[in-house]
Design a binder for these strands. Structure first.
Lengths: 110, 110
DNA sequence: TTCAATACCTTGTATCACAAAGTACCAAAA
DNA sequence: TTTTGGTACTTTGTGATACAAGGTATTGAA
């Protein structure tokens, strides 16, 4: 029941991960480990056990597709790509995110 | 398994409710129904079954205290107030929120 | 006394992030 | 050839929490 800074950040991130994944894949295709890297540089620490099921969920929803690609450094990688449906969803989420930011700003005003 | 706009918004809000409650109570004390009203005007629809347990959790963490006040319009109301610890937590959350917004902006940049 | 409005609370369910452990592939060292 | 280390994908169990739905209690007006 601690309230570390990490806990606070982790808590605030809930539900936003999905948005972040789509945003990254909108720029370029990526596989799980590279997504984790990019999320980390943006200050969002995510672990495998969180990311893999999330990617599978998004794929099952038709937001993503993937293709296998050989790697010179180990086993093959699953590269994920945004589908048309994923792009639509991302557009909706961009709007929702904007409204969320504005909503919180409005709460902050007296 | 639908992806309505409402679902998208609801999903993005997860974990941010706690932050919103503290932010509102930092401006003025409030009771549950008035919090729901203010959250609604900020575009965050919350139901009683969500809010009451959340307030109890925050109170048990020492972030909030409350006092009863008679109402002319029905049963007495539980007015919640930020404690010193709650203000500290809010300051931390302000920082975390700022970093979250910047983190997402950075993801959006190519 | 009955009803409607207001306010607080609880229970059951689904979802989701995480920790931890497991499976599989590959290349280089022993 | 076998072992080891690194990389990558997956699954299981747990805890937290948002929500739907239903319950309790107070007040004032019909």
């Amino acid at each position: 029941m601690e309230n570390t800074v990490e806990n606070v950040r982790s808590q605030m991130r809930k539900g936003l991960l999905e948005y972040c994944i789509l945003s990254i894949l909108d720029k370029r295709e990526a596989y799980a480990s590279s997504l984790i890297e990019e999320l980390k540089t943006a200050g969002m620490i995510v672990v495998e056990g969180t990311l893999y099921p999330l990617l599978i969920r998004q794929k099952n929803q038709g937001l993503l597709s993937y293709r296998w690609e050989e790697s010179t450094q180990g086993p093959p990688r699953k590269y994920y790509v945004l589908t048309d449906k994923g792009r639509e969803q991302l557009a909706q989420m961009d709007g929702a995110w904007q409204e969320l930011v504005e909503g919180i700003q409005s709460l902050k005003r007296v």
